[in-house]
Amino acid sequence: MDDSARAWISAIPPFGPDDVGVLLSLDLTSRDPGERMVAVLLNRGHEGEEGVFSLLPFDLSARYERTGGRLAVSVLASRQVLVDDLAGDTDDDRAALRAHLAGLPRDAADDDRVTLLRRELVTDFVPAERDGVKQPVLLIDHPGPAPLAELLSGFERGESGIAVLNAD
Rank of each mutant, 00 (worst) to 15 (best):
W8R: 06
G69M: 07
F58K: 09
G132Y: 02
R63S: 10
N166P: 00
S160M: 00
L41H: 09
R6D: 06
E65Q: 15
P147R: 09
D32F: 05
E65T: 13
D110C: 09
A11H: 10
G154A: 10
S61W: 01
E49W: 00
I162E: 03
Q80A: 15
G88P: 03
A108K: 13
A62L: 07
F155I: 01
L56S: 10
L104F: 02
D18A: 15
D124H: 11
P13W: 05
L42W: 02
V164P: 01
G21T: 15
A39P: 01
R119S: 06
L101V: 02
A109F: 12
L26C: 07
P105A: 13
A149L: 04
D84Q: 12
L28Y: 01
D3I: 02
G103E: 14
G154T: 04
F125R: 06
L152Y: 01
V164I: 15
R94L: 02
A99P: 00
L117W: 04
A109Q: 13
L148C: 05
P33H: 12
G144W: 05
F155A: 05
L104V: 02
V73I: 09
G45Q: 08
R94P: 00
D89S: 10
G16L: 05
S54G: 14
H100P: 00
L117H: 07
A62Q: 11
A163D: 06
L55W: 04
E49I: 03
A149T: 11
R118C: 13
D3A: 15
G88R: 04
G154W: 02
L97W: 07
K134I: 01
L71K: 02
H46D: 09
S25Y: 03
V122T: 15
V20P: 01
D92P: 01
A146C: 10
A72Y: 04
H142P: 00
G144L: 08
G103D: 15
D124E: 12
A11L: 09
D2C: 06
S30K: 07
D2E: 11
V38G: 04
S30E: 04
R106C: 10
P143Q: 13
V20H: 13
D85V: 04
D131H: 11
D59F: 09
D92V: 10
L82G: 08
L28H: 03
F155R: 10
I9M: 06
V133C: 02
E50L: 12
K134D: 08
D85A: 15
D107H: 14
F58A: 08
D92S: 13
S30Q: 04
A5M: 11
L86W: 06
S78K: 07
A7P: 00
D19Q: 14
D91G: 12
T29A: 14
T67L: 11
D27R: 08
P14N: 07
L55V: 10
R94K: 10
R44Y: 10
G154N: 09
V126A: 15
G103H: 10
V75M: 04
D110N: 15
G16S: 01
